[in-house]
């Protein structure tokens, strides 16, 4: 299968405290992350808040370009491209944010909100209305409601509209940053079904960011677990569910609520790291010895060289 997105040693750092450049600390929100996403799959990124999931997503979309590392889209490096040259790729990668209430401009009718993007990409004017109707229909919103304002819709409906807006650019990759965590459980299911349906109708690849392991394990083909800016485990869903390796993954799994007796095997037991490596930094060499090591075939685990 073809890789649609490849991350090579992506690092995003922010300046920390200190006025003098020599004393200024550097905080690495995303630290040396590498992985690939294959076309037409769903890649899940899991981790606690503050672990760098959203920063990574913004880096991938070059909203906040990474400080170091490369991002390749269909094998074309995006980092270093000028704004103008980046534009066509921007359209191919769209994002859906967590909170649908703040993602839509309350003063604009949803028709206007959706029109903006289409106008900017010089979509034929005569067809804009038709296209918006088509998109709304696709996500299950009555097209005749398009002149309504965001407050007239419920949370789930707003999230549908946000998804429709992202789709108006005809993207290939959709980054979903916790798209359902602000919604009720029953509405979550509706949105998740919608995402799966859309994938069946249009060729789409998802990068799905969430802290909900139940959901990610249901939806995704491959999962990356993030902790403190690093990917600590990377594996196909079946592998990681049946055999979580990294201590942090184990911790996440055991604290996931509602272990309703169906998944006793999921708690797992502590697993030894691959030969010559350890899960915690044993000595401070001043060098970064962290890397992703193959545990079993494509099941990767992050550990430190001994």
């Amino acid at each position: 299968m073809r890789d649609i997105l490849e991350l090579r040693n992506v690092t995003k750092s922010f300046a920390g405290h200190g006025i003098l450049p020599s004393k200024r600390t550097v905080y690495k929100a995303v630290n040396n992350v590498s992985f690939t996403i294959q076309k037409d799959t769903i890649f899940g990124l899991v981790g606690e808040s503050g672990c760098g999931k959203t920063t990574l997503a913004r880096s991938i979309l070059l909203l906040d370009p990474p400080t170091e590392g490369e991002i390749l889209y269909n094998n074309i490096p995006l980092t270093g491209l000028s704004r103008k040259k980046l534009l066509p790729y921007r359209m191919k990668m769209q994002i859906v944010f967590q909170d649908p209430h703040s993602a839509l401009n309350p003063k604009m009718s949803i028709y206007k909100s959706m029109r903006e993007g289409l106008v900017n990409r010089h979509y034929p004017k005569a067809r804009i209305k038709e296209r918006i109707e088509e998109l709304l229909e696709l996500v299950g919103i009555t097209p005749s409601h398009m002149h309504r304002f965001p407050h007239e819709f419920s949370g789930g409906q707003k999230q549908r509209i946000v998804i429709a807006r992202a789709l108006s650019m005809e993207p290939e990759l959709l980054v979903l940053d916790e798209p359902v965590s602000n919604l009720d459980v029953s509405i979550q299911a509706q949105i998740i079904n919608l995402l799966l349906d859309l994938k069946g109708k249009i060729s789409l690849t998802y990068l799905f960011i969430s802290h909900d392991l139940n959901l990610v394990s249901y939806l995704c083909d491959r999962i990356g677990v993030m902790s403190r800016g690093r990917v600590v485990e990377l594996a196909d869903t079946e592998d990681i569910m049946s055999n979580p390796v990294h201590p942090y993954t184990l911790k996440l799994f055991s604290s996931s609520p509602g272990k309703m007796g169906t998944d006793t095997g999921r708690k797992g037991h502590p697993v030894n790291p691959p030969e010559g490596y350890s899960f915690s930094e044993t000595r401070n060499t001043g060098k970064d010895t962290f890397s992703l090591v193959s545990f079993k075939n494509s099941h990767m685990v992050g550990c430190y060289e001994k």
Binding site: S154, G156, V185, S186, I187, Q188, A189, Q190, I192, N193, L196, D212, N214, L215, S217, Y218, L219, T237, M241, G258, T262, D263, R266
Partner: peptide, 23 residues
Amino acid sequence: RLLLKSIPDAEKRGTRLVTIPGK
């Protein structure tokens, strides 16, 4: 029953989630 069924889980992979229509 529907609330319980709409919870996503690894066991349900590949199937559609049960939803409660409407609001």
